[in-house]
Design a protein around this nucleic acid. Structure first.
Length: 631
RNA sequence: GCCGGGGUAGCUCAGCGGUAGAGCAGCUGAUUUGUAAUCAGCAGGUCGUGGGUUCGAAUCCCUCCCCCGGCUCCA
């Protein structure tokens, strides 16, 4: 990484000069002047406190590089399709995109090829990228002449009457900048995909065509990036799920409904058992509830008002009230709460259930195990007094982090979502609840971001998102206050002063759902499950059929030790069986032949490490036990 | 739900107006195998669904279902 910081003296002595006069623009992309990113054409005033000049390896440098790349993309599109209207084109985490209004037209794959070619041509032209500050009126005139209606809409919202535009060749775009100085600096440029998007995120507004691209200062970096993407695709849980025979779906059953195959199911059960025990240890009480409930229940809960579009339609009967399959467990847990008069001495009450829910997600959002229509949450509802809220939240966060650690997750993001525009409950309740989330997070040194106004209407929440192989983030852990349900179902507890009061209700799921969590877990381990989770922990490979008897004997010992094992009895060469087992990512292979049988031993081969040599059975089992328990 | 791409044997894919093909997997046989693919033979498909165009459709058009990439929305 190249980075240059101008000293006070350098700033003073270069007053009136453009920064680009001090450095080579092939090495440096932009400058950060007193914390604000600027073009290298920035003229030094002399009174700046700090000027930092950065390259592509700096996030701000990269941003500018990709931002300029998005302008190059836009210029290419405008040259090929002059009738297309520009909207916006920001840099993103990996590359950039630009949204175009194309009326009834869309971009075909052939169009994208042409656009990429044209973009490369524009790069060849090595156009200077010039920043111009002009009056708002002038900008409006320019974009009106060009028919850029969307730009005018944006301009009308700018309060300043000075705006900046960037020009490269004949292409002009309204833009804050900064940008790199020449299109020729982009040595590698690739269009990755296209899709639609909505103007201003409004699905009722104009539909735009978005083109995604990536660019780098060298071809080599592009190749490296593309290779990384290829590698990531190999860990995709949908691919591994099929290859390792973990789960599937069936068109005949319906979209977003998961079939857990034996190998997937055993992993799930291990996770369930672990979670069940841990809940009990932490003072949760298990409950089981039905999958359907009467229409009336969902009227009281309010789901039929605010959640109906996500619910499977009503089951109607001739002589009885209709039923709905549950999209959430909360109304059921509330009923258990209501089944008794609750004293303040009973609180906190923590009901937990691996509750299966069904949500009619819109067809386009379904995604492997990560977004499905039927899933099982590791769900719990905590009912407590206001005084207990803080401790309860702390307990839940601690539990969540413990679970993530157990599965080896380190790369996650935490968001605390605050009060939205429309909400239920009092401001005091919101404030108290939100503060308890923030305070608890701070106490366990959890770094988080505040998502202003992103809370659900019924309460603030804290979410933990885990990244998948392709970099997409999935919300797993969620801890949400619910100010709505207790009110609607009018639940109370009898306090020490003999009066009935409203308890606080905290809804939480740690894994989120077994489906999504399993999907993320597969990608996290790239299918190489740690020994305690591996569906087949050991496979015994007899060198030939002659050693089947001994193999059976070894299998018996393993089974007695509760180690999940199998024998590959196929009439094949050893190399073939080893290859098959390696592809299936089986942690340990025990090879048995003449030497092994004589010594009551096995030859151990570990996945990813290879041959570990011959070992006595007793000894290997001890090692396996240790490895299983160490997790 | 929206925009685009796609659905051919269990899997990965070729064929894209003249009537269906490969590799792997499967089955059978031979081989009795020492750490990532032994050889041979056999079998396997109403080309996602329903309709249309055509003398003729896997191939062109439309409907629906499902999958993929995004958008919007969420565990």
């Amino acid at each position: 990484m190249k980075k240059k910081v101008l000293s006070k003296e350098e700033i003073g002595s270069n007053k009136g000069k453009k920064i680009v006069e001090l450095v080579n623009d092939r090495d440096y992309l932009i400058a950060i002047v007193d914390g604000v990113p600027k073009d290298l054409s920035y003229v030094i005033k002399g009174n700046e406190k700090e000027i930092e000049i950065v390259d592509f390896d700096h996030p701000k440098g990269r941003e500018a590089f990709w931002h300029t790349s998005s302008h190059i993309l836009a210029q290419a599109v405008k040259e090929l399709f002059p009738q297309v209207k520009l909207t916006i084109g920001p840099p993103i985490e990996n590359g950039f995109h630009y949204d175009f209004y194309t009326g009834d037209n869309t971009f075909t794959p052939q169009d994208l090829e042409k656009i990429e070619k044209k973009a490369k041509e524009i790069i060849e032209r090595n156009l200077e990228v010039v920043r111009m500050e002009i009056s708002k009126e002038e900008a409006i005139r320019i974009f009106r002449d060009k028919g850029e209606d969307f730009k005018i809409e944006l301009l009308n919202e700018i309060e300043d009457d000075k705006v900046s535009v960037y020009k490269q060749g004949d292409f002009v775009d309204l833009c804050m900048g900064p940008h790199i100085l020449r299109t020729g600096l982009v040595k590698a440029f690739k269009i990755l995909s296209s899709s639609s998007s909505y103007w201003r995120k409004d699905e009722k507004g104009p539909v735009l065509q978005r083109i995604y691209g990536i660019s780098f200062p060298t071809e080599k970096e592009l190749e490296k990036y593309l290779k990384k993407i290829e590698e990531a695709k190999k860990r995709d849980h949908r691919k591994l799920g099929k290859e390792l025979d973990l789960f599937s779906y069936s068109e005949d059953i319906g979209a977003g409904l998961i079939l857990w195959h034996p190998k997937g199911a055993i992993i799930r059960r291990i996770i369930e058992n672990f979670m069940f025990e841990e809940h009990i240890k932490r003072g949760y009480l298990p409950v089981y509830t039905p999958h359907v409930g009467k229409k009336k229940l969902w009227e009281i809960s309010g789901h039929l008002d605010f959640y109906r579009e996500n619910m499977y339609p009503e089951m109607e009967f001739e002589e009885e009230e209709g039923y709905f399959v549950k999209p959430m467990n909360c109304p059921f847990h509330i009923q258990i709460y209501r089944s008794n008069l609750r004293s303040y001495r009973d609180l906190p009450l923590r009901f937990f259930e691996f509750g299966t829910v069904y949500r009619l997600e819109r067809s386009g959002v379904l995604h492997g195990l990560a977004r499905v229509r039927g899933f099982t949450q590791d769900d719990a509802h905590i009912f407590c007094t206001p005084e207990q809220v803080e401790d309860e939240i702390k307990g839940v966060i601690d539990f969540a982090l413990f679970v993530l650690k157990k599965f080896g997750f380190k790369d996650y993001k935490v968001y605390i979502s605050t009060k939205p525009e429309e909400y239920v409950g009092t401001d005091e309740m919101w404030e108290m609840a939100t503060n308890s989330l923030i305070k608890a997070s701070k106490e366990v040194n959890l770094s988080f971001e505040i998502a202003e106004g992103e809370g659900a209407f019924y309460g603030p929440k804290i979410d933990i998102l885990i990244r998948d192989a392709i970099g997409r983030e999935w919300q797993c852990t969620t801890i949400q206050f619910d100010f709505n349900m207790p009110e609607r179902f009018n639940i109370t507890f009898r306090d020490s002063d003999g009066r009935d009061k409203r308890p606080y209700m905290i809804h939480r799921a740690l894994l989120g759902s077994f489906e999504r969590f399993f999907g993320v877990l597969i990608e996290h381990y790239a299918g190489n499950f740690p020994l305690w989770l591996a569906p087949e922990q050991v496979r015994i490979l007899p060198v030939s059929e002659k050693f089947m008897n001994y193999a059976e004997k070894v299998l018996d010992v393993l089974k007695r030790e509760k180690i999940r094992a199998g024998i590959d009895a196929e009439n094949e060469k050893l190399g073939y069986k080893v290859r098959k087992a390696e592809i299936q990512k089986i942690p340990y292979l025990f090879i048995v032949g003449k030497k092994e049988e004589e010594k009551e031993a096995v030859s151990v081969r570990k996945h990813g490490e290879g041959d570990l040599g011959i070992m006595e059975i007793r000894k290997v089992i001890k090692l396996l036990r240790e490895e299983i328990e160490s997790n």
